[in-house]
């Protein structure tokens, strides 16, 4: 059941990302897996895309669909990619699994004009409840892992992300929140947003 729910979540992520990417732009997808999101962006948005992932076997699927792929470890940076060589750099459901999230965010905004960052909100109320009453490391349908096998090594909330952007002079241009299965664009107040959103999805850019 959990995996189904997670699949549906990732489906809804993708639909939302599709609406955030303009047509015919250059897109770099970091942690692209089998390049299926890029495949959709190429088909529906006519973008020129490149996918980066640490897993070469998965990238072969991108090659089959004519997508350019690059095997690499995000934690080592992306020195082979020149400054401002893409319009959009996507980092969906990946920020929480890298060792050097700050390096990755910096690289994103060095390489691309805009970044699209999506991550699970670890301050969502069900997770808080689990921790508070259950006294156990938080789990939810979108975060079904045990403490010992979770790929999520960076635990952050929507509020944390906004704080970081403010510190680093990064502009959050657009925000989308997944709440109770629906995407919401604006919500009154950070406190409630941070309590209710399962997932946050942001378009960011380096303040000029």
């Amino acid at each position: 059941m959990n995996t189904q729910y997670v699949d549906r979540l990732s489906r809804t992520d993708r639909d939302m990302i599709l609406t955030l990417v303009p047509e015919a732009v250059r897109v770099l997808d970091l942690g692209c897996g089998d390049c299926s999101l890029l495949g959709e962006l190429v088909a529906k948005r006519q973008v020129r895309g490149t996918g980066v992932d640490i897993n070469g076997e998965q990238l072969v699927n991108g090659l089959v669909h004519g997508i350019n792929v690059y095997q690499g470890d995000l934690d080592e940076g992306l020195v082979d990619f020149p400054d401002q060589s893409y319009d959009y750099v996507i980092l969906n459901q990946t920020l929480q699994v890298v060792k050097n999230p700050l390096l990755v965010l910096n690289e994103m905004l060095r390489i691309g004009r805009y970044g699209i960052v999506g991550f699970p909100n670890f301050a969502q109320w069900q997770l808080r409840r689990g921790l508070f009453f259950g006294g156990r490391a938080p789990k939810s349908p979108s975060l079904p892992f045990e403490w010992y096998d979770t790929p999520n090594i960076r635990v952050l909330s929507i509020r944390d992300f906004f704080d970081y952007c403010r510190q680093q002079r990064i502009d959050v241009v657009q925000a989308r929140y997944l709440m109770a299965g629906r995407w919401v664009q604006r919500f009154p107040g950070m406190v409630l947003t941070n309590l209710l959103a399962h997932i946050g999805l942001f378009v960011i850019t380096r303040a000029s």
């Binding site: 070469g56 990238l59 690059y70 095997q71 690499g72 082979d80």
Partner: peptide
């Protein structure tokens, strides 16, 4: 190999790179 991939990327040329383990 990466040196060449980088040169292709600098020219926005279509390039793919895979390192086989």
């Amino acid at each position: 190999t990466k040196e060449m991939v980088r040169a292709m990327l600098c020219n926005s040329k279509p390039v793919s790179f895979i390192e086989v383990d």
